Simulated scan of single mutants.
Amino acid sequence: MTGRLITGTAWGPGAPWALEQLPALLGADDDPEAFRPRHGVVAAAHRKHAGLQLPRAGLVLEAFVRSVLE
């Protein structure tokens, strides 16, 4: 994503943090060439959907705890 303009709008107490994280959330730090799926199902999905990038939050523990509690 080098050289692309990323804009966003956020509100609330976490707005500054969210806007600061926005490029990484959209994959600016990703290196698609470095991804090497090790599991067969993941490798098959990677081949079937070549070029697909999924956003990340970087807050794995927070997402996990919310999922468990819900």
Score class of each variant (00 low, 15 high):
residue 1 M to C: 08
residue 1 M to W: 08
residue 3 G to V: 02
residue 3 G to Y: 03
residue 4 R to V: 05
residue 5 L to I: 08
residue 5 L to G: 03
residue 5 L to H: 09
residue 6 I to D: 07
residue 7 T to K: 12
residue 9 T to E: 12
residue 13 P to H: 08
residue 16 P to Y: 02
residue 16 P to K: 04
residue 17 W to E: 11
residue 17 W to M: 09
residue 19 L to Y: 13
residue 19 L to I: 07
residue 20 E to D: 15
residue 20 E to K: 15
residue 20 E to F: 15
residue 21 Q to E: 09
residue 23 P to M: 00
residue 23 P to F: 02
residue 24 A to K: 07
residue 25 L to I: 11
residue 26 L to A: 08
residue 26 L to N: 08
residue 27 G to W: 13
residue 28 A to I: 02
residue 29 D to R: 09
residue 30 D to C: 02
residue 30 D to E: 04
residue 31 D to N: 15
residue 35 F to Y: 15
residue 36 R to D: 11
residue 38 R to F: 01
residue 38 R to E: 15
residue 41 V to N: 03
residue 43 A to V: 03
residue 43 A to W: 05
residue 44 A to N: 12
residue 47 R to L: 06
residue 47 R to Y: 02
residue 48 K to M: 08
residue 49 H to K: 02
residue 49 H to F: 09
residue 49 H to W: 13
residue 49 H to N: 13
residue 50 A to G: 06
residue 50 A to I: 00
residue 52 L to C: 03
residue 52 L to D: 02
residue 54 L to Q: 05
residue 54 L to F: 10
residue 55 P to T: 13
residue 55 P to C: 11
residue 56 R to E: 05
residue 56 R to H: 15
residue 58 G to D: 04
residue 58 G to T: 05
residue 59 L to R: 15
residue 60 V to G: 02
residue 60 V to Q: 07
residue 60 V to L: 08
residue 61 L to T: 12
residue 61 L to K: 10
residue 62 E to Y: 14
residue 62 E to A: 14
residue 63 A to T: 10
residue 64 F to I: 14
residue 64 F to Q: 08
residue 64 F to M: 10
residue 65 V to I: 12
residue 67 S to W: 10
residue 68 V to Y: 12
residue 69 L to R: 12
residue 69 L to S: 04
residue 70 E to C: 03
